[in-house]
Design a protein around this nucleic acid. Structure first.
Lengths: 330, 330
DNA sequence: AATTAATTGTCAAACGTTTGACAATTCCAA
DNA sequence: TTGGAATTGTCAAACGTTTGACAATTAATT
C-alpha cells in the first residue's frame, strides 16, 4: 500500500505538500497540484482513512440499525439509505439488530468505538437506554428512542384512517385489523388509532388481532385462518403488506373470494409489492422521502451537533388502489 | 470519550498495563486485571478501533458487495452474512453496487482505504479489473471475478437439470426458459446448460427468452406476455423466483390456468418465497450453507493470506415442490 | 536471607496522517 | 532592483493505541 511519503518522493515534493494538496490547505501552485495528483494516480494511492480519522477527519461512515434486510420493506429502506448516502460521500455499516436487544446494544457500542459520524436507527427493540447516552447524532425511523432523538415517520394516523375509509367504501361492514403486537411509544400505534376513529365515526365496530412481528409465517397463517373463519369478516386491514399476502393465502384456502367475499388493504407499499403484487391495495409509505429527510436531518446534526431539531417529522402517505379493495356492488 | 489513559488513572496503573490487559499481553496478576476491567466498565470504555487498526490490529470489518438488498434473495443473503459474521466478531460495510460499475469501483477503493479485513462480493458487474489487484482476501458468490478468487455457488447445472425434469414430469412438452441476460463466465449460465441438456435428452426443444436483470417489471411483464401468448408454451422455467411471480401475473391476465394450462418453476427458493408463495415450485439455493462456506473460506484467507483455495465450490440445490408444477392428468 | 520468578512501571517508537509555526525559495510587478 | 506576495520546504506535535526494552518492585521458593 502506497503511503503519503511514497507520493511525495515520486512527485518530488515534501510530504507536507502532498497532504496540503489532498486537503486543499495552504496555497499551492497548479503545477505542484498536478504533479501530486499524477503521482497519486500512478501509485493508485488512497489516503489511509484510519489515520485520517484518528487525526480528527471524519471517516464518513454512518451506522444503520434495522431489524434486518430480508424483509422487503426494510430491504428497500436500507437500499435507499445506502444509495443516497453514497452520493453524499458516506458509507454505511449495516447492523441487523433482529429482535435481539443484546445485539443492538453491542452494535451501538461498536459504532461508538468505530467513531462513526452518525446513526440511523429503525430497529424494533425499544427500551435501549444506551441510546440516551450515545454522544452521536442519531435519527430514528418510526420508533421512539429517547428525548432528543428526532423521529421520522409516515403519517400513521392518516394511514389508518385512509385504510378504514377504503374498506368502508368498498362495502365492508365487519372489519378486522391485523397488526403487529403493539409497543408503547411506537408511532405505529397511530395506525390503529386512525383506523379506530374512522370506524367508530361510522358507528361500526371492528376486531383487533395482534400477531407478533417475529412470529413464524405458519403461526401467523394459523391465527389469520382463525380470524377469517370464526367471524363473518368482510374487510381486513393489515398493518403491513406481507401479512396481507398471508391473508390472501388463507382466504384462498378457505374458499373466500377477494374482493367479492373479503376486501383487503395492507400497509407499506414497497416497490416490491407494487411491482409484483399490483392487485394488493395498500397504503404507501414514502420511503424515498423518508430517507431523504432522515439523511438531511442527520447531516445537519453532524455539521452542527447542537442544532435544534423537532422531535417528530411526519410525511404524508398515499393510498394505492388495488383489486383487493375493489367496491363490490351487491 | 474515555481513553486508555483515563482507565489507567482510575485503575491506578500505568497505561501500558491497561493496554496489556486489553490485549492479554505479558504477565498480569488477577488483581490488576480485575481493577482494570472494573475501571473499563465504570467509564464505559471502548478502545478506539481506529487507533488500534492503525497499529496493525484488524478492524474486524468485512466489505460486502451485492447489487442491492431490496431484492429478497440478496436481502436474505446479506442478512445471513451479517448474522454469521456478527457471531464471529466481524461487522460489515454494505456496498450496493447496483448495476453501476463506477460505484463498484469506488467501493472497492474505499474498502481498501478503510483497511477492511476482507470482501465478499456478489455483484453483477463483471469485468472489474480492479479485483485482480486488490491485495485483500476476497470470496465471490456465483460470479467469476479473477483468477485466484474462489467462487462459491449452488449447483447451477443440477438446478437447471432438475427444473427441466420437473417440468417434463409435470407433462409439459413445450417448454420455455426465461433467464436474465447472460454474461460470459457467469456460473449461472450453467442453469441454462443443465436445462438444455435434459430437454435435448428427451428429444424436445425449448425456447429461450433473455430479459435483462435490471429491466423494469413492466418491461419484463410485457416480454413475458409475448412469450406466453405467441407460443403454445405449457411449461416455463424462470431462473429466479421474482420472474416466476411475473409469469403468474401475466398468465392470470391471459386467462391461462396454472398448473392446468401452464406449469411453472422458479429458482432461488428464498425464505420469503417459501413462506409467502408456497404455491411456487422452485429450486432452492442453500443460502445458509453458501454463506457459511464463504465466511469459512474468507476467514481462512484472512488468517493465512497464502492459503490455497479451490477456484470453485459448488453446493447442492434442492427442489421445492409446489402447486405451480403439479402434474396434470389429461 | 538469598535467590528466582512474576508482576508492574517508565520510556519511547511506531502506525499514517494533519496542521501549525517558521524559514527559505521563487515569482511578479513597480 | 527591490519589495512583497505566493509558494514550498523543514520540523514537530498530535490523534489513541500497541509493543518492545529495560528497570524496579513485589511475591514465592528454597
Amino acid at each position: 500500500m502506497a503511503k503519503l511519503e511514497d507520493i511525495a518522493k515520486l512527485a518530488e515534493v515534501s510530504p507536507t505538500t502532498v497532504s496540503r494538496v489532498i486537503n486543499n490547505y495552504g496555497s499551492l501552485s497548479e503545477k505542484t497540484k498536478s504533479k501530486v495528483f499524477a503521482a497519486m494516480k500512478e501509485l493508485n494511492y488512497q489516503p489511509n482513512s484510519l489515520a485520517r480519522s484518528l487525526k480528527g477527519k471524519s471517516a464518513k461512515i454512518i451506522g444503520v440499525i434495522f431489524p434486518g434486510v430480508s424483509n422487503p420493506f426494510f430491504g428497500q429502506m436500507v437500499e435507499t439509505i445506502e444509495n443516497q448516502l453514497f452520493t453524499k460521500g458516506y458509507r454505511i455499516i449495516l447492523c441487523n439488530a433482529g429482535n435481539n436487544k443484546e445485539k443492538e446494544r453491542a452494535y451501538l457500542r461498536m459504532l461508538i468505538a468505530n467513531q462513526v459520524d452518525g446513526i440511523i436507527a429503525g430497529s424494533h427493540n425499544l427500551e435501549i437506554e444506551e441510546y440516551q447516552q450515545v454522544g452521536l447524532p442519531i435519527i430514528s425511523f418510526d420508533r421512539y428512542l429517547s428525548e432528543n432523538i428526532p423521529i421520522v415517520s409516515s403519517d400513521n394516523y392518516q394511514g389508518g384512517k385512509t385504510a378504514a375509509e377504503i374498506l368502508l367504501e368498498s362495502g365492508s361492514k365487519n372489519v378486522q385489523i391485523i397488526s403487529g403486537a403493539n409497543r408503547p411509544n411506537s408511532p405505529t400505534n397511530k395506525r390503529l388509532e386512525g383506523f379506530r376513529k374512522t370506524i367508530e365515526e361510522h358507528d361500526l365496530e371492528f376486531g383487533l388481532t395482534e400477531i407478533k412481528f417475529d412470529a413464524s409465517p405458519n403461526i401467523k397463517g394459523m391465527k389469520i385462518k382463525e380470524v377469517l373463519s370464526n367471524n363473518q369478516v368482510d374487510g381486513v386491514f393489515c398493518t403491513d403488506d406481507l401479512t396481507s399476502l398471508l391473508v390472501v393465502q388463507q382466504a384462498k384456502s378457505l374458499g373466500l373470494k377477494i374482493p367479492e367475499d373479503l376486501r383487503l388493504i395492507g400497509y407499506d407499499g414497497t416497490k416490491f409489492i407494487q411491482e409484483f403484487h399490483p392487485e394488493l391495495a395498500t397504503i404507501e409509505q414514502p420511503i424515498e422521502d423518508i430517507v431523504t429527510l432522515m439523511i438531511d436531518l442527520l447531516l445537519k446534526r453532524i455539521k452542527d451537533p447542537k442544532c435544534q431539531l423537532k422531535q417528530n417529522y411526519v410525511l404524508p402517505v398515499k393510498a394505492i388502489a388495488g383489486e383487493t379493495s375493489r367496491r363490490i356492488s351487491k
